[in-house]
Nucleic acid binder design. Structure first.
Lengths: 206, 206
DNA sequence: GTCTATAAGTAGATAGAC
DNA sequence: GTCTATCTACTTATAGAC
């Protein structure tokens, strides 16, 4: 497994090794064109190589895509986890969820092409690849499940919400932003505030 | 353009013509495997034919996929429009939006494989195909924009929400259900009620 | 209308030179 | 480590029989 990308969007900007450059190039092409249109030739070209050179670093196209997806999912989870950890001890669950919403949107839309690649392509992978990426995704969902469970325990969750459905609807709203958001139509802070407001009011008792 | 599919999931159940059977088969394969893994051979097999027979009805794979996507997007819009039209005159905007939420989820998850195909694959299409499907999608978003604009005009919309971002987050939450929902994990009515509750509380003043 | 046979094109992967 | 050249497999699409 490679060292984590730098964490500025541009994980593609100043890659050190050729291997990392290939991973970044793959994330970039996956984000822009989707799994079906992602050719090894395109990846190699973005990385400044010819296709056969890829095989010096990865045993197959599948290995390359799998690593990008795993890294991307891990980046999302780590970024959200770190943001929560940075909150003062005793921060309430409402603010914690708003922090998670912001962190998810930032990593997905601004900080990492790897994260975008995961969101846009996880559902399109062939079964074997999807299986290989699943564990990281499960861990991320567990993070949200814990947040909602905490809210429920404290009696803050609105009644009539199925916890699992509510969690998936919220994550879905956030993930779908990768399909439509562009900085030219609405600034990211506007989106973040709207998402925080929508999620808070939707989940919590007034 | 073919006659609309029957509107029970399955549009694939009792198709009359071979052409309709091909469209249904395409919707089914697209929903299950995604655009990248949808082969003409798979489609033909589901329809009970060999691949070359497809060319008797469609000039290319692209034509076939394009028609499925257009039909699917139209079905979603018509189903939601019809559900709204069936409400008594003077029904308030809150209930109208809850009706739209339910109609969207029903057509997408239960009534039409065509609708699922659109939601899961619209973002993965090559550019030329995406352009051809765009108009129907725009019309559907206009429907939601009008609903939210009506809420805003009546002073029901919570402050701090960007209308466009809020609309896309809501539609995104609904669309993403196609990626995760299965009837075995939570019954559809549970999902519908949770989504209605989340959206209503998220959008409207208490 | 649907088939078998096959052409034409493209993508992933390998061989071997440098 | 990266290249050119090539192989193999697969997919769309066409030709022509029935």
């Amino acid at each position: 497994m490679s060292p984590a990308p730098t964490g500025t969007r541009n994980d593609t900007a100043r890659p050190t090794t050729t291997r990392d450059r290939l991973l970044s190039a793959t994330a970039q092409v996956l984000s822009a064109k989707g799994y079906s249109e992602t050719r090894l030739t395109d990846i190699a070209e973005v990385a400044g190589l010819r296709a056969p050179a890829v095989y010096h670093y990865f045993s197959s196209r599948e290995e390359l895509v799998a690593e990008v997806m795993t890294v991307g999912q891990r980046l999302v989870r780590e970024h959200v986890t770190d943001a929560l950890a940075a909150l003062p001890a005793g921060t309430g669950v409402v603010e914690r969820i708003e922090t998670a919403v912001e962190a998810h949107l930032l990593i997905e839309l601004q900080l990492s092409e790897f994260a975008t690649a995961v969101t846009r392509n996880a559902g399109q992978l062939p079964d074997d690849l999807r299986d290989r990426v699943r564990d990281e995704g499960t861990a991320y969902h567990a993070l949200w499940r814990d947040l909602l469970e905490q809210a429920r325990t404290e009696g803050l969750l609105r009644t009539g919400l199925d916890p699992r459905a509510a969690r998936m609807l919220v994550i879905g709203a956030l993930n779908w932003t990768a399909e439509w958001w562009s900085p030219r139509q609405s600034p990211l802070p506007v989106l973040v505030r709207t998402a925080q407001s929508l999620v808070s009011a939707g989940l919590f008792e007034p």
